[in-house]
Amino acid sequence: MRIAVCMKQVPGVSEGSMDPRTGVLIRTGLSAVTNLYDRSALEAALRIKEQQGGGIHVFTMGPGKAEEVLREAYAMGADHGYLISDRAFGGADVLATSYTLMQAIRSAGEYDLIVCGRQTTDGDTAQTGSALAAWLGWQQLNWVTRLEVKEDQILAVCRMEEGTAEVTAPLPCVAMVERESFIPRMPSLKLKMKGRKMPVTVISLQELEDAVPEHYGLKGSATRVKKIFAPKGAERKELVYKSGVEGAAYILELLKDTGQETGI
């Protein structure tokens, strides 16, 4: 069983800034952490490995600093880490990012399963995993709350609009897991020590089958940020000070005013 897990380094606080000219995220001077949803992706993969055996390879795309994500993954139990890093990859949107991931994963070998977190905390789009599945031409499982492998089939429980669904799909496939169902384990000290010395493979543009720089990064992106601006509603309403009785009466009036279907 060969499992690939995609993980991303994101700004520690959701207070990143953008270059107003290019619309590209400015990462300098910000604390960086592993996207918390991606730790759950690794957790889901580790649980499968515990039952099935095999290896877990983690892929992260970003600047050199993103190697920290791989060290963290080693401390949780990942077997090998790939740092997808090249100037040409910078400024990628979902289309270009998912294409880069597909190229990088293919360059590393064959996989039976790719696990992604449901979303990142910076982009917040929840699209990259599905786009990756599309590039590969694989089936995808979204909003996964349980994941098991039986022979060459994947058994999953997924959230759907209709309720909870039990899904059986053939391998290979891409699974995007929900955080609550895969609370990540604590990194072990032993693995952490070992992980410090484990090698990391850097994948740059030249290692990819498609090494045309225009297919990646900002140039390979279909979307462009035209402008950024402060959200509306910045004008602040006047604060009122209320005691218990006054406060209750005040809120009740507001609720009556809101009226519809609140049962009052």
Binding site: L95, Q127, S130, A134, R159, M160, A222
Partner: peptide, 21 residues
């Protein structure tokens, strides 16, 4: 849940842009 799983596949199919939410 359905739309957000479907849209990325389509944007890749047409090699075009998708903006979420």
């Amino acid at each position: 849940l359905e739309g957000r799983a479907l849209a990325p596949r389509l944007s890749v199919e047409f090699r075009t842009g998708l903006t979420a939410d």
